[in-house]
């Protein structure tokens, strides 16, 4: 089968790769591009472990075809920390013990960042509904929600 040539931007880097037409973006990230921070929990769009940002939109990379990345800008967990170190959300997840096993964490952090980018001051309900596409089996969500609340507070203070 002939492969598709894709040119895209991932975490600010220009990236070119080849993929088979039916390959998902998750597979391309993990198997072709070696970006293993994005996780697979289900492959069917139900767990959010594979969450990435596509031109400012939140998507499950397991439901997106790799070929659709052509000309777009993607952000993965590897692109969340900046040159100055961890993003506030990452720090708050650590401080609040908002991860136990940590397999869901990349997806939650990408999703929470998308939330705070659009709504810097979400209430608890808004956080819970926004993150309802991300499954965590370990924490019961309590500490995750608190970490996001605290990150929002700190970001508001900085702004």
């Amino acid at each position: 089968m002939s492969k598709v040539h894709v040119q895209t931007t991932i975490n600010g880097d220009q990236v070119e790769f080849l993929c088979v037409p039916q390959q998902t973006m998750l597979e391309a990230l993990r198997d072709v591009l070696g970006k293993l921070g994005t996780k697979e929990g289900c492959g069917t769009g139900d767990c959010g472990a594979c969450t990435i940002m596509l031109d400012g939109r939140l998507v499950c990379s397991c439901l997106m075809l790799a070929a659709e990345a052509e000309g777009q800008e993607l952000t993965t967990i590897e692109g969340i920390a900046g040159p100055d170190g961890l993003h506030v959300l990452q720090r708050k997840f650590l401080e609040h013990a908002a991860l136990q096993c940590g397999i869901c964490t990349p997806g939650f952090i990408v999703a929470a960042k998308a939330l705070l980018d659009r709504n810097p001051n979400p209430d608890e309900g808004a956080i819970r509904y926004w993150l309802a596409g991300n499954l965590c089996r370990c924490t019961g969500y309590d500490k995750i929600v608190r970490a996001v609340q605290d990150a929002a507070k700190e970001l508001a203070y900085q702004a």
Binding site: L36, L86, Q90, F93, L94, A97, L99, G102, T105, P106
Partner: peptide
């Protein structure tokens, strides 16, 4: 305190079962 393996788990560095090729 923050766990010693924490930073790797919030940045996507930590290697889980499917992450070895």
């Amino acid at each position: 305190p923050v766990r010693p393996d924490g930073v790797d788990k919030v940045t996507g560095r930590a290697q889980f079962g499917a992450d070895l090729n």
